[in-house]
């Protein structure tokens, strides 16, 4: 589904990714953890070409991302992304936020899009908030609208970049439940997260990154109980 091979990425002189590889199968849920500045956001932003890469290759459903005239639209139809700061469109209601891209980008029929959007609202448990503007919603509610907005494009894979980091502990849960539902339905998910409990319970595979490389990875039970690398042990020791 998503295949990342020996990816190198620099911002000017600063090399942020120094040869990262991972493979994500259809229906898998993968968590990426690691200290701040280790390149987690950069990595998943490369997957939908928000960042370009200097070396290596990324393919999504057979489409190579690192090519000069990339069909960005094609790629972004396949990849949904949710950000830490929600980034909703503040001038549109929750429902309209969800409906915009399918109408503007995919040119789908407005009636059908609305029906789909209402289903998604239900799915992220926001019935009754359809006509609220982002400024009138709580952080957790905004984040769930953002998830629904991405889902409205019917992506094959979803990227989540620390989507709960800006939320208070109470609301973290409501967002994680939404993501867990998605994973359970077989959506391919790549999450950058600090929620170790979530990673343990939901992830099929956990990657630990530090200073632009993947230090260690494995299924959650081996990864969390039986980490080999001292850096991983230290990080887990601090966080657990």
């Amino acid at each position: 589904m998503v295949s990342i091979k020996d990816v190198h990425k620099s911002f000017g002189d600063l090399e942020v990714l120094k040869g990262v590889s991972m493979d994500i199968m259809k229906g898998e849920c993968v968590c990426i953890i690691g200290p701040s500045g280790s390149g987690k956001s950069t990595l998943i932003r490369c997957v939908n070409a928000l960042n370009d890469i200097q070396g290596g290759s990324i393919t999504v459903e057979g489409q190579e991302v690192n090519v000069p005239n990339l069909d960005k639209l094609e790629l972004r139809k396949k990849v949904g992304m949710v950000f830490q700061q929600y980034n909703l469109f503040p001038h549109k209601t929750a429902l309209k936020n969800i409906m915009m891209a399918p109408i503007h980008v995919l040119k789908q029929d407005e009636k059908e899009v609305e029906a789909h959007a209402r289903q998604l609202i239900k799915k992220v448990r926001l019935e009754g908030k359809e006509n609220g503007y982002p400024g009138e919603l709580s952080g957790g509610q905004q984040q769930r609208v953002a998830i629904a907005r991405s889902l409205a494009m019917s992506p094959d894979v979803m990227l989540f970049d620390e989507v709960t980091a800006a939320l208070d502990p109470e609301t973290v849960k409501e967002v994680l439940v939404t993501i867990q539902d998605l994973a359970a339905e077989g959506m391919t998910c790549i999450l950058v997260t600090h929620e170790m409990g979530f990673a343990k319970e939901v992830a099929n595979h956990v990657y630990f990154t530090d200073k632009g490389v993947i230090v260690e990875h494995g299924p959650p039970d081996t990864f969390f109980n039986d980490a080999k690398d001292p850096r991983t042990q230290e990080f887990l020791g601090q966080i657990l």
Binding site: K72, R76, H91
Partner: peptide, 30 residues
């Protein structure tokens, strides 16, 4: 208009032209 908002549009498949029309100009106008 925050770049993060523009990026969200980009990630949803908006071209530069379309993000200007539907997101950037309406927000900038206000």
């Amino acid at each position: 208009v925050p770049t993060s908002t523009v990026e969200a549009a980009e990630a949803l498949g908006y071209s530069r032209m379309k993000s200007y029309i539907y997101i950037i100009f309406p927000l900038a106008f206000r």
